[in-house]
């Protein structure tokens, strides 16, 4: 996959870190401000997709990245499921039980298990969108060979 011109590459290098950090902020502050795992995960995936589109990538590295991202996706979904079913053991026997202390509302460390769910789902959504993108790119490279 070929990269784009020097101007696009330079602007992407400047913007990409900002987009990535904004995505992380949206994920980790999901229980305080509008946003959450889905929106932040899509932003993080957008940062990666922008980098690959602007700079290009070689076939072998693309394959490796796809393996890693699909593994991340499955691991994050399993982690969310384990966290949800750990509510069955702790406290009252309810799936999706919020067993951690609620904390002071408005602080970053509050809301019990809700921030952890947001982080896991953020990783999952980012990895899923990146996997779909990489699968399409690899398909095109396979065809042109």
């Amino acid at each position: 996959m070929w990269g784009m011109s020097v101007i696009v590459k330079k602007i992407t290098q400047l913007m990409c870190a900002l987009i990535f950090v904004y995505g992380i902020y949206i994920i980790t502050h999901g229980h305080l401000t509008p946003g959450g795992g889905f929106a932040g995960g899509a932003l993080v995936a957008g940062a990666f997709i922008l980098l690959i589109l602007a700079n290009g990538s070689e076939y072998v590295r693309l394959k490796k990245q796809e393996e890693g991202s699909s593994m991340m996706e499955s691991a994050a979904l399993i982690a969310a499921l384990v966290l949800a079913s750990s509510g069955l053991i702790a406290g009252s026997m309810v799936f999706f039980n919020n067993f951690l202390p609620a904390g002071i509302p408005g602080q970053l460390a509050s809301g019990g298990v809700i921030p952890f769910f947001n982080i896991f789902i953020g990783i999952k959504v980012a990895a899923a969108l990146l996997t779909i993108f990489l699968a399409l790119v690899i398909y095109r490279e396979d065809i042109s060979k």
């Binding site: 999901g30 229980h31 305080l32 401000t33 509008p34 959450g36 999706f96 919020n98 202390p101 609620a102 904390g103 002071i104 509302p105 408005g106 509050s110 809301g111 019990g112 298990v113 809700i114 769910f117 947001n118």
Partner: peptide, 13 residues
């Protein structure tokens, strides 16, 4: 739930 964003509280609890 302790989450100020009520939407997140409803969504995840």
């Amino acid at each position: 739930t302790g989450a100020i964003n009520l939407v997140a509280g409803v969504l995840w609890d």
